[in-house]
Simulated assay, not measured.
Amino acid sequence: MEGRAARLEKARAFVLANARLLDRRRYELGLEGGSADGVIAALKAYQNPDGGFGNALEPDMRTSASQPVAVEQALWIMDEANRFDADIIAGIAAYLKSITVPATGGFPRALLSVNDAPHAPWWITEDDQQASLNPTGNILGLLYKQTAVNDFKQEEWFTRSAEFIWNRIPQADQTDYHDLHQCITFLQYAPDRGRASALQEELNRWLRQPGVIELDPQAEGYVHKVLDWAPVPASYAAELISPADIERHLDDLEKQQEADGGWKVSFPSISPGNGTEWRGLITVNRLITLQAYGRL
């Protein structure tokens, strides 16, 4: 079996040959001591004049138009880089204000403009007038977490959207990774800690249900395994998973590296180029996880 140094070098070559500039910058920051400035500069290319993000930042949405999920992705990238850029955040706030659902607060899962360019079938959108837990929960949670810009947190669109999530969490699908991930992020960073703690007790009960966090590294089908829930040791769900289970899944993750140095995509791609983008992104994610757990 190849040593870790050799496998890392193969992964590096794969990333440099195949990944988007943004993901190459993420690799440099996470694995080679690169600069967060490089990540932010690459990320800004995906931001639109309306302050939102599009331009296939979420690779399965090829539209140039801004989308809520692309905003969510931009926030996660800044969080990973530990650099919330004030100009980017100010633009995001302006965009989110413009798409807040008037009746309830919150943001749609996707806007109808997603249909105007190639997209994965799960992003087909017929109604963009209903707010959705996904991605509103993660967006608000990360906006609470960042402190680069704070003034909008008292604005009516933001407080109504937060109240939408408070009311929506008890109705979340108790076994769905995407719903529960939104709940986790929002409850981690919402400032009302008393209200959050009460719901976190219920959330932890949901997470402990058999099969929600899939413990079998070899499980197939639409499952979310240990390292989906805990990609780094500081992840919320890591405390609910035994160290032995984490180690078993890290062993399996190392074995999943392909001969070309990258990791596979576990879902269908909409084009060869789309598949390559996803493999680059996922390979960087896998390397960051292995690095965080001391496997590189």
Rank of each mutant, 00 (worst) to 15 (best):
M61R: 09
M61A: 12
M61Q: 07
M61S: 05
R62T: 12
S64A: 15
A65S: 15
P68W: 07
V69L: 11
V69P: 00
V69N: 04
A70S: 15
A70G: 14
V71R: 07
E72Y: 10
A74I: 03
W76N: 10
W76M: 09
W76V: 12
W76A: 09
M78I: 06
D79T: 09
D79L: 09
E80P: 01
A81Y: 04
A81T: 09
N82V: 08
R83D: 07
F84A: 09
A86H: 03
A86F: 06
A86G: 09
A86S: 15
I89K: 07
I92K: 03
L96F: 01
L96V: 14
S98N: 08
P102N: 01
A103W: 02
A103K: 15
G106W: 00
F107Y: 14
P108W: 06
P108E: 12
P108R: 12
L111A: 05
L112G: 05
L112K: 05
V114K: 01
V114W: 01
A117K: 11
A117I: 03
A117N: 11
P118K: 14
H119M: 12
H119V: 13
A120M: 05
P121N: 12
W122F: 10
W123A: 11
W123D: 08
W123S: 13
W123L: 14
I124V: 13
T125I: 08
T125E: 06
E126R: 15
D128A: 02
Q130D: 08
A131K: 04
S132I: 03
L133Q: 07
L133C: 10
P135R: 00
P135Q: 00
P135E: 00
N138I: 13
I139F: 03
L140N: 03
G141D: 02
K145V: 05
T147K: 10
T147L: 05
A148S: 15
V149D: 09
V149H: 00
N150Q: 09
F152H: 06
K153L: 07
K153D: 05
E155T: 11
E155D: 14
F158R: 09
A162T: 06
E163Q: 15
F164Q: 06
F164H: 13
I165N: 09
W166G: 13
R168W: 04
I169L: 12
P170T: 09
P170I: 10
P170L: 11
P170W: 07
Q171V: 08
D173L: 13
Q174S: 12
T175K: 12
D176K: 11
D176Q: 10
Y177D: 00
Y177I: 14
D179W: 05
D179L: 02
L180E: 01
L180R: 02
Q182V: 06
C183F: 01
C183L: 07
T185G: 08
T185C: 04
